[in-house]
Amino acid sequence: MTRMDTHPIEAPATAPSAGGTSLHRFANPGRFLRLSGAVLPWLTAAAVALTVAGLGWGLLLAPTDWQQGDAARIMYVHVPSAWLASAGYFSLALASLFSLVWRHPLADLAAVEIGPVGAGFTALCLATGSLWGKPMWGAWWVWDARLTSVLVLLFLYLGHIVLVRAFDDPVRGYRSGAVLALIGVVNLPIIKFSVEWWNTLHQPASIKFTEAPSIAPGMLWPLLIAAIGFSLSFAAIVTARLRAAVMERRIRGLLLARAVSR
């Protein structure tokens, strides 16, 4: 099986192994570059528009919370970044699955490029959570199940970032990183359900606080728009990084071919 890393010019759409034809069609980096090049400007425009609209609405126009006052406005940053921290890890695991099982060359690069972005969103989630916790709870940090499991998520991201770049042979890095990413998936349901399975300081609690999750519509809309904006931003950033990575790999291949032919 020809590795794309050493292949100077990718063959157009001819799958190297039988059975993988349909999947490897989408692995064609040339097609990816053309498709993503057409989509990325629109994606970026929508991401910027929705993020600015959601955050601007949340910061300036949304009503002040009855209980927490203006501090509740941190929600419009904290909650979308928390969702993207988990969703980003899910996409990392998905890319890792394709990388490990189907040896999908684009998935290898996607996993490498998703890692730092996901870590950035997770760090943003933890930082804004801390900034919210200090004035409201009275503590920057507590070791409850929710906060701890999100910290573990950050370490999984950081571990993946280091591991995937730790080998001279990039393929070994891709495989090891994929295994780590897939093992880490076990943390995602723990993050999600930590506030239901155990008593946590993080809301909602298991006892006496149990009400239907409720946010007034005037606060829910900016939150949803900010969340869509963050999702599109994440997608746009990863797409741009992936385009760069594909082109960088092609540059390496061309330079290598040139060096060999001389």
Binding site: P63, T64, D65, W66, Q67, Q68, A72, M75, M136, W137, G138, A139, V142, L201, Q203, P204, A205, F209, E211, P213, S214, I215, A216, G218, M219
Partner: peptide
Amino acid sequence: EVLAKHDETYMPKEVAE
């Protein structure tokens, strides 16, 4: 040490009133 725990209900002051 006493930490406050708030629930997941968010609403404007006017609605609460």
